[in-house]
Amino acid sequence: MSEISSDAVKSPGAISLEVDDAVFAVDHPVRDPQALTSALLYLDAITVSFDGFRALNALSLVIGDREMRAIIGPNGAGKTTMMDVITGKTRPNTGTALFAGINDLTTLDEAAIAQLGIGRKFQTPTVFDMHTVEDNILLAVKADRRAFANIRWHRTAHESARVDELLERVRLKDHRFRRAGDLSHGQKQWLEIGMLLAQEPRLLLVDEPAAGMTDQETADTAVLLKEIAKTRSVVVVEHDMQFVRDLDVKVTVLHEGSVLAEGPLDQVSADPRVIEVYLGR
C-alpha cells in the first residue's frame, strides 16, 4: 500500500480498508478459445463524428484483464465519448470494440453491455434519490434483470448478504435506511461505487470519482479503487493530478479524440506534446 493509503487507514472513524476478498470475489471465466484477443477491452480505430466534428478520431486502446488505467486529457479530448462507445450509448462510425475478445460492443445496447460485465460510474453521482441506500445497492446486485421475474421477486439470502457486505465496504451501513437523496456528495459517490461493485462487473469505467470530494475522501477513494483493481479491470477518467498520482498506474493521455501519449505518469507528464496540450496550460 502506498503512503496515501496508510493515511487513509489512520483517519478517524475510518474502517479498515484491508481487502475483503468476498466482496470482490468474481468468477473470471476461462478465456474463450474463439476470443480474438487476450485483452479484456480492445478498441481499435474508433471514430465518432457529430455533425462533422470528430469526437473520437481513430482511437485505439487496449485494457488488460485486472489492469487499472487512468485516462487524462483536456476538456473535449473525447473521454466521455469513449465511455459512451464502450457502454453502448453512442455507436461509433467506424472501428472495432471488443469485450473479452468475443463480444462486439458496437452491436449491443446499454443493458446488454451492463449484463456482460461493464459497469459505469457517472461524473456527477447518479443514485436513485427516492430509494433508500439499501435499495440502491439491491437494485444493482447481480440478478435477473427481466421485468416479469422482478414482479415475483423475493429477496434471497445471497442478496441480503451481498447488500450487507457492500454497505460495509462503502461505509454506508449506518445509513442504509436513509433516502439516497439525503446523503452528502462524497457518500453518494461511494454509494455509486458500491452499486457498481454490486453488479460484479469485470470492467469498471469510473468518470471523475474524486470530483467534489475532500482531500481525505479523495485519498480513500484512490485506495478503494486500487483494491477493486486487484480483481477487476478499472478505467478511471480524472482531472485531479494528485489523485492520478495516488493511483500510480499507467496513464493514457487523450487529445482531440485520439491517444497522444501512454505510460507512467512521470513519463507522460515529461512529454513535451502533453505539456503543450494539457499540463502546461
Binding site: K89, Q115, V127, H131, R146
Partner: peptide
C-alpha cells in the same frame, strides 16, 4: 422499485443492465 428508478434516473437504470 425499478420503475421508480427509471422515473428518477433512467439512464442509470439502463447502465445497471435493466431494459
Amino acid at each position: 422499485k425499478v420503475l421508480v428508478a427509471v422515473r428518477d434516473a433512467e439512464s442509470r437504470t439502463r447502465f445497471l443492465g435493466y431494459r
